[in-house]
Measured scan of single mutants.
Amino acid sequence: ENVVSAPMPGKVLRVLVRVGDRVRVGQGLLVLEAMKMENEIPSPRDGVVKRILVKEGEIVDTGQPLIELG
Rank of each mutant, 00 (worst) to 15 (best):
G63R: 03
G26Y: 12
R18L: 11
S43A: 11
A6G: 04
L30N: 02
R24P: 11
I41T: 09
V25F: 15
G57R: 11
Q64F: 07
V48R: 02
I67E: 08
E40T: 09
E58V: 05
M37R: 06
I41V: 11
R18V: 13
M35C: 01
Q27Y: 02
D46L: 03
I52N: 11
T62D: 12
G57E: 04
E56N: 02
T62G: 07
V60H: 08
E1R: 00
K55A: 08
V49G: 03
D46E: 07
K55V: 14
N39Q: 08
I59Y: 06
G20R: 11
L29A: 03
V4M: 11
V15S: 08
N2W: 03
D46I: 08
I67W: 14
A34H: 14
L53D: 09
L13Y: 08
G63S: 07
N2C: 00
A34P: 10
V60F: 11
N2A: 14
S5V: 10
R22N: 15
V23I: 10
G10F: 09
D46Y: 02
L30P: 00
M8A: 05
P42N: 10
L30M: 12
V31P: 00
P65K: 01
V54G: 06
V17W: 13
R18F: 09
E40D: 09
M8T: 06
G70D: 10
G20S: 09
D61K: 07
E56W: 02
R14V: 06
L69T: 12
K50T: 15
V48A: 08
R22E: 04
P44C: 01
G47V: 08
G57V: 07
Q27C: 01
V54E: 04
V17D: 06
G20E: 14
M8L: 12
I67G: 15
D46Q: 03
V31R: 09
M8Y: 06
L69K: 01
V49P: 05
K50G: 10
P7W: 09
V54N: 04
L13H: 12
S5Q: 04
E38R: 06
L29C: 00
V49Y: 02
E56P: 03
L32E: 06
E56M: 03
L13M: 12
V19M: 06
V3Y: 02
N39S: 09
L29V: 03
S43P: 05
G47I: 02
L29M: 10
P9T: 08
G63L: 12
P65G: 06
V15C: 00
R22K: 14
D61W: 05
L29H: 02
V12I: 10
D46F: 02
V25Q: 15
D61A: 07
Q64P: 05
V4W: 01
G26C: 01
S43H: 03
E38D: 07
Q64D: 06
T62N: 06
R14L: 08
V49K: 00
K11C: 01
A34E: 03
V17H: 08
E68V: 02
P65Q: 09
S43D: 02
L66V: 04
E38Q: 11
D46M: 04
R14I: 14
I52Y: 06
R51V: 15
K50Y: 14
N2H: 04
R24A: 11
I41F: 10
G28K: 04
L53Y: 09
V3F: 02
E58D: 13
L32K: 09
R51F: 15
V19R: 03
G28N: 06
K36V: 11
A34F: 12
V25A: 15
K36C: 02
K50W: 05
L16H: 07
I67H: 07
R22Y: 02
E58Q: 06
K11A: 11
